[in-house]
């Protein structure tokens, strides 16, 4: 018996420890432990010097039920929802055209979607601000063409924040859609047409169901980050269209109320879990999200 378990140790346990040990250590110490600690902290209080004290309370969650916060949750969910819808409406036809293209430049078309995202995201968002600002390109052109007499203030509205969110997140919609559409078997479309289906009904009964996996994973990867992208709402929304991420950021930086920020993060985690569960219910594959 002793000899057998020694063999088992050398053949299975030891290599498992060597290979999986480092990953396990990092995931436990830097993902599981910190998130659990945030959960504990959300029930903590602060003293008059803003230090976290371990007097347990439900006060942070009670404060979150405040109408000012609720307004920002609703606004944040609405921004994320509109962003996701716009990403689908722009991303789906675009991915379809590129993925079904027979052009020999197809690969270049695809790379042209990715290249912009290799420039720092902050500076690209700043590029939008330079473009849309009162002394930016758009206004100078409109004024010099005589279309408007005074520069229009495009910035600091919900619309500009949504524009920035769509801009930052649309590749997460286009890439899974491209993958799903490219896999689509062309003969199925021909069969559908041969059997007398009109293009519209072929789309709704054949194409859409076969590519829905791309829509689901794309929507998840657009909607969730959108709730947290505080810098987009900062630079383009200027404080007028905050998302949940802005509330959290404020508590950990200027506001300095970490337990309240922790409670806000727990809300965001719960929203994420609900959406991931819904995604799995719809038959979504978790491995499709990270690749």
């Amino acid at each position: 018996m002793a000899g057998k378990s020694k063999h088992e140790f050398r053949a299975n346990t030891l290599p498992a420890i060597i290979t999986v040990g480092p990953v396990a250590l990092i995931m436990l110490l830097l993902v599981a432990a910190p998130l659990m600690y945030v959960g504990v902290m959300s029930f903590c209080s602060i003293d008059e010097y803003y230090n976290v004290t371990h007097d347990l309370t439900l006060g942070n969650y009670v404060r979150l039920a405040n109408t000012d916060y609720l307004k920002i949750y609703v606004q944040s969910l609405l921004i994320a929802f509109i962003t996701t819808i716009l990403c689908i409406l722009i991303g789906y036809p675009f991915s379809y055209i590129i993925a079904r293209s027979k052009s020999r430049f197809k690969r270049i078309f695809y790379m042209l979607v990715i290249i912009p995202f290799w420039t720092n995201s902050l500076i690209r968002i700043y590029g939008w601000r330079s473009f849309l600002g009162t002394n930016g390109w758009l206004n100078s052109s409109l004024v010099s063409l005589g279309i408007v007499s005074e520069p229009i203030d495009f910035l600091y509205k919900n619309g500009t924040t949504i524009l920035g969110m769509v801009y930052c997140l649309i590749p997460f919609m286009i890439l899974p859609l491209y993958t799903a559409i490219e896999k689509l078997d062309g003969t199925l479309l021909e069969a559908s047409a041969d059997l007398g289906a009109k293009p519209v009904s072929t789309f709704f009964t054949v194409i859409l169901p076969l590519t829905s996996s791309g829509i689901f994973s794309g929507s998840l990867m657009v909607f969730i980050p959108c709730l947290g992208y505080f810098f987009v709402a900062d630079i383009l929304g200027g404080g007028n269209s905050d998302v949940i991420g802005n509330l959290i950021e404020r508590q950990f930086q200027s506001g300095n109320n970490w337990p309240l920020g922790a409670a806000l993060s727990i809300i965001l985690i719960i929203v994420t879990l609900v959406l991931v569960k819904a995604y799995q219910k719809l038959g979504g594959d978790m491995d499709a999200l990270g690749v």
Binding site: L30, L220, G228, I269, T272
Partner: peptide
């Protein structure tokens, strides 16, 4: 780390 909003990972690492 793939699905959670980055800000949550950021603040949880900060607190730990």
């Amino acid at each position: 780390p793939v699905v959670i909003p980055e800000i949550v990972l950021g603040i949880s690492l900060l607190t730990i």
